[in-house]
Amino acid sequence: MRLAQVFWPLLCLTACSGPPAPDVAVCQDVITRLCASLSCPGVVETLSVGPADCAGTLRERTGCGTEAFAFVEPSRDRFLDCREPLLRQGTALNQLPACSDVQRALSDCPDMTTFFQGATP
């Protein structure tokens, strides 16, 4: 009883969340995480981007640069599923993913990789 009383606020804090973020925010969150992981083996080759303007290039390829962006293919749910490995280190924007998680996200989700390569899957 006491234990539940003590941990209830913590459970609430971890379970409570804010409103759904727009698609553009979700897309740019992934772009931020991928571009911060360019030093990981194979990422540059897979995404075909350089370190100079990684985020700008990916936003331009995907259309994530405009506020009106909305997921079509892949869908928002699929994109969120593919994004999960990138959140293993934390959901805050300043927490970068591990290289193994980035490689796994790219290999497990070829549709997302294709999406960032600027081609229709």
Partner: peptide, 30 residues
């Protein structure tokens, strides 16, 4: 909402008001 975090479901982090309310209720229960 806390826009510095985006969870697995694509939601922003809880607002300060929500956090305060959660802690307040928890502390009241004890």
């Amino acid at each position: 909402p806390n826009r510095d975090t985006l969870d697995e479901d694509g939601h922003y982090g809880a607002s300060s008001r929500k956090v305060a309310t959660g802690w307040g209720v928890g502390v009241l229960i004890v």
